[in-house]
């Protein structure tokens, strides 16, 4: 009750206040802008409805970029975490490189990707995957290192092989960590996808936002941003739901 009703009331109140402030021109006056540039929630809703097929088309493109980019980042992050686990030397060798991968500003990296791979989905997937990879890889690696050494000894006297140790002890220990990393990754993924589109694309919500912004179609910019937020919240919810279903012991 309190979890849903109070936030809903707050959002409704904010939207209402925005509606009044926008229609009376209060925001435009305060910012010293043309009232045309400040869309009211009602105008945003209208823009969303009127351009629904255009927005949906572009949202679908962006959703695919986020979803598959996230999956690639997840796979690479898990692979790094798990495959390098048995080889401490390998892990230490790769760790600085992994950190460096995150230190490279995507803002520099993304345009190069467009030069290399063109306007298609490839560069967006790369940007999204790169952003998701780091928190997942680091969280998984840390999770595997959090394994209780006494429990390892216990498992050894219970005849566990190296593989059984991984599946029965190490992986379940690391799972909650991996999920934390995945939740961070999936939160950044939509921003990464939009950025990937800004650098060079012919479709997607980021592409739409860029075009509408140039044409001062602010209502549809907000409408696209709204859909993007919905995608982000939905994906986060999916990961959180998966976590609740899988990590039942917490």
């Amino acid at each position: 009750m309190r979890r849903w009703v109070l936030p809903a009331l707050l959002i409704a109140g904010l939207v209402g206040a925005w509606q009044i402030a926008a229609t009376t021109g209060a925001i435009a006056d305060a910012l010293n802008l043309d009232p045309l540039l400040i869309p009211s929630p009602a105008e945003i809703a209208t823009a969303l409805w009127d351009s629904r097929s255009l927005v949906a088309e572009n949202a679908w493109v962006t959703l695919k970029e986020i979803f598959f980019g996230f999956l690639i980042g997840l796979a690479a992050g898990l692979a790094f975490g798990f495959l390098l686990r048995p080889f401490e030397t390998l892990r230490l060798t790769f760790y600085p490189l992994i950190v460096a991968s995150q230190a490279i500003p995507i803002i520099v990296f993304a345009p190069i990707l467009v030069v290399w791979f063109g306007y298609g989905i490839g560069p967006k997937l790369a940007v999204v995957a790169l952003v998701c990879f780091f928190p997942i890889a680091v969280a998984t690696a840390d999770g595997l290192r959090a394994v209780d050494l006494q429990a390892v000894k216990m498992m050894r006297t219970l005849d566990a092989s190296r593989r059984q140790l991984l599946w029965r002890l190490e992986m379940p220990t690391a799972l909650p960590f991996t999920f934390s990393g995945a939740k961070i990754g999936v939160t950044f993924a939509p921003i990464a996808a939009v950025f990937g589109e800004w650098v060079g694309s012919d479709s997607g919500l980021g592409h739409l936002i860029l075009q509408d912004n140039a044409q001062l179609n602010t209502a549809r910019v907000f409408a696209a941003a709204l859909v993007l937020s919905a995608i982000a919240i939905g994906l986060y919810g999916l990961v959180a739901l998966a976590e609740r279903r899988v990590v039942t012991w917490r």
Partner: peptide, 28 residues
């Protein structure tokens, strides 16, 4: 191969039920 070790803390694996914890050696 001849000795089972019971550590100080129970170290039951929280993701397994009581019986699956007890049966760990058999599963291994």
């Amino acid at each position: 191969a001849r000795c089972a070790f019971m550590p100080q803390r129970d170290l039951l694996l929280p993701w397994l039920s009581a019986i699956d914890n007890a049966a760990l050696a058999l599963r291994n």
